[in-house]
Nucleic acid binder design. Sequence first.
DNA 1: TGGAGTTGCATCATTGATGTTGCATGTTCT
DNA 2: AGAACATGCAACATCAATGATGCAACTCCA
Lengths: 194, 194
Amino acid sequence: MTEATRALRSDAERTVRQILEAAERVLSRNPAATMEQIAEEAGVARTTVHRRFASRDALVGAMAAWATRRFADAVEAAHPETAPPLVALYQVTANVLRVKLDWGFAMSRALTADPEAARVHAEVEEKCERVFRAAREAGLLRADADLGWARRVYYALIHEAAQSGDGDADALATRVVDTLLRGVGTAQGLTAPR
Amino acid sequence: MTEATRALRSDAERTVRQILEAAERVLSRNPAATMEQIAEEAGVARTTVHRRFASRDALVGAMAAWATRRFADAVEAAHPETAPPLVALYQVTANVLRVKLDWGFAMSRALTADPEAARVHAEVEEKCERVFRAAREAGLLRADADLGWARRVYYALIHEAAQSGDGDADALATRVVDTLLRGVGTAQGLTAPR
DNA sequence: TGGAGTTGCATCATTGATGTTGCATGTTCT
DNA sequence: AGAACATGCAACATCAATGATGCAACTCCA
């Protein structure tokens, strides 16, 4: 590769990045936004977007792939396999929130029919599953907890925290984990544990 | 009104109902579904849908209006103003779930720029707010609970329960309220209450 | 300076969804 | 049977988004 092509490719990649980020901003507000609006937000012509991404699907696919990679990295950086369950839970939450705050739309579309993305997601899901199992065995979750439901609730709480958007990732993670484990009640006046 | 027109109007309303229900089924699976697909599901021609609803927006608006009415009725039937907070919470949850299981898409679109729907929703939101305040004063929620966050979590749990779809509305409501108040953890190994 | 590569702009073709209309065919009640 | 209305069908018009292309202008580096 010549110096020239390297520099040019760098320019091109910068443009691609700008488009991806613009698309995230626009589509997170309006998932049905047009290519024109995305191009405008990115500060480029619509034709440029089409030169970089063969189709709308290709663009969304690239966004999903990018977000999936950052997502997987965020989970891995928390060392969910080796850290104690509570620590892992907190760190994963904070790291994932950091990604989700910036790539919410892309992550919501990351479950499309892309083989690689599906593989990565399955892998992460597996890790999440293990953390929850470990948490239950460590007595962090109730012994009779439905892990499927717990995971759904966990995802939903992360989603809500990312939407509310007030506070940094660490504060939000604290709130998410606290709510997940303790709820918002005092546990008075309730039926005895099942 | 003549007998004839009454009978005909009854037929027409039956068709309208079929279209609304078909639209809910189709759009809940694919929000971008075409009028053609909706008509097919309803067992009518596409032109018939257009005769009944001037535009796609009008159709979605009618779905939202219908769901909003059922939603408001469901909340009211739980007597949230007079029942004890925990009872109110449970009854409202179960009743709303019953509606949401059938009209999930329509309810998700019920916050559009329709003046009447907006008014009804604001009213319900107000009631929800009051129930949560009463719950906190009754010691059901923690004294330092963030009511805004609690309400978001509550909505999210209802949504998840409706999506998971296993079990009847009562079982799901039990799960939702239990999770909302106690979370899924044992409260061991956590930091002391703030 | 010259070449390689990229972008913006204008333009066009295609496509799929939406919405409309006329007409023949039922259906229901009187 | 006849009136009133609804429906299916076919055809049409419209429209917006998508995607493609040719060309001039620009940037960057050798």
